[in-house]
Amino acid sequence: MALSTERESVARTLFVAAAVALVCSVMVTAAVFYLRPIQAVYANVERNRAVIMAAGGTSILASDSEVVEAFFQLEASVFDLATGVALVSTNAHTYNYWQGLPDTEPAYLSVFLKIDKGKLSRVILPIHGKGMWSTIYGFLALQSDLNTIASLVIFKHGETPGIGDKILNPEWLSSWEGRQVADEDGVIRITVSKDSTPMLEQYQIDTITGATVTSEAIGRIVRRMLGPGAYTEIIGALHKDWSRYFEIDIKTG
């Protein structure tokens, strides 16, 4: 009985609570302190893996070192979205273009180029925007005409498992390939929609049955990212003379 009253005394209760809290917090802080940097490295590798896949270079099963090697073979430049000017002094390969999302829209984005024997083969653009629930991140690759879609890769999303995550379906993603972004007048036409209009087939991707909202959201994201305020200026500039913006990389690489 004496033992149990002693155990219940206020001072002792406070002491035990404080001791447990202290030990637990040290354990948790140590784990986070040691693991966060490793997580950041792995997260970078995974993001670059998605870039490589959009570039059509490799499969999802490539090893981490293969990913890193292929990634640094791409040309890269950071662009100011407002002006379409390249920031030559920033290292675009390591620049964290999605920093601050989903709260603040980025002002600068990296653009990656795949060069084949001195010729432009693909342009890879990071894209992001709101899905049904979450912010969806991905990469859109355009062919050298800067109007034909070469591939679409979804990097990260938080949509409903089993419903919204149908946007990861390889068949649906490959249905984007070969579609046109804009018509001859430069009007952006690409859409994801339920019904197909025969004349505009080359601009249309079908919605996913059972994931209508999320798949239409992807369509909106692509339209918004290619539109004014995002990549329009940059695509125009690259269209005129892409090598100008990537000069430095080509000389050193």
Binding site: T13, V16, V20, A21, C24, A31, R36, Q39, A43
Partner: peptide
């Protein structure tokens, strides 16, 4: 462990272990 704060201490011990496990999974099985 004093009986009066038994549950909350147990939950804190469990939660700390879960945070460590969660960080490990986030690191090695993204």
């Amino acid at each position: 462990i004093p009986r009066s704060i038994r549950l909350i201490l147990e939950v804190i011990i469990i939660a700390s272990a879960v945070i460590v496990v969660d960080e490990l999974i986030k690191t090695f099985a993204v």
